[in-house]
Simulated scan of single mutants.
Amino acid sequence: MTPKTDEAFLREVDEELRRDQIVGVWKNYGRVIIGLIVAALAIFAGVLGWRAWSHGAAEKQAIELQQAYDSIASGNSQAAKAPIDKLASDSAPGYRALAKMLQGNDLLAAGKTKEAAAKYGEVAGDSSVGQPIRDLATIRQTHTEFDALAPQVVIDRLKPLATSDSAWLGSAGEMIAMADLKLNRQAEARAMFKLIAESDKVPDSIRQRAVQATQALDPGTNVQKGK
């Protein structure tokens, strides 16, 4: 053979060998390959179906929660009770947490402080819920049962929320300072009140109380907002 003819022959042999290999694989594993393809398509279709169902369910729960809010705002809390109870027991984590917070508010309004604190505690301890809602629940729980808690429990529970860059500095810090006063730790209480008074992230009502408390504990203290 000439070099060109030899090269063409080898290429034809190589192509024929590849075809034989493909045919062999298909004969031996064709059904398995088809099964895998069908299974992959079924899984893909299932994921799309689940997403559509989940979106529809979340939309329905959002509407139910909004209707409950509207009923409460109009003074018809009784009409809101059934949908809130349903959402609190069977809904997505976020809607479930908000429904439980509403249940806690309703219990608190009825004077059932222990039950209300327990409901807030359920939300605070739910790791499937977003941290901002859990933090709010912790604030509400501690405020509700403040008088019944040991001061050190209040301090330990709220300390992570009473930092200068925390959105909860005002509420958490105020309760921590009051707990410090119960323990006769005036220096710690004064420092916390001063931190609140000088923060520009704290609501004015809480800040004004902190300013008054700081000056009462140390009349010579100069408080400047946003310092």
Results as ranks from 00 to 15, higher is better:
203 P>R: 01
203 P>N: 08
77 S>K: 12
222 N>E: 14
131 Q>K: 14
209 R>Y: 08
107 L>P: 00
108 L>W: 09
137 A>K: 03
43 I>A: 12
190 R>A: 12
132 P>K: 06
203 P>F: 01
99 A>Q: 03
70 D>P: 00
189 A>W: 02
2 T>V: 07
128 S>V: 05
4 K>I: 11
109 A>H: 11
157 R>F: 01
3 P>Y: 06
131 Q>F: 10
111 G>Y: 04
5 T>C: 05
191 A>N: 13
49 G>I: 06
69 Y>I: 12
132 P>D: 05
9 F>W: 11
180 D>A: 12
202 V>A: 00
54 S>N: 14
116 A>V: 01
9 F>G: 03
211 V>G: 04
154 V>Y: 05
97 A>K: 04
27 K>I: 15
211 V>N: 05
209 R>E: 11
96 R>P: 00
117 A>L: 06
66 Q>C: 01
184 N>C: 00
1 M>A: 10
127 S>H: 11
172 A>M: 07
116 A>L: 07
100 K>H: 09
173 G>T: 06
17 L>M: 14
93 P>Q: 00
227 K>R: 14
147 D>H: 06
70 D>I: 11
38 V>Q: 05
136 L>C: 06
183 L>E: 08
42 A>P: 07
27 K>W: 13
45 A>H: 03
115 E>S: 08
121 G>V: 01
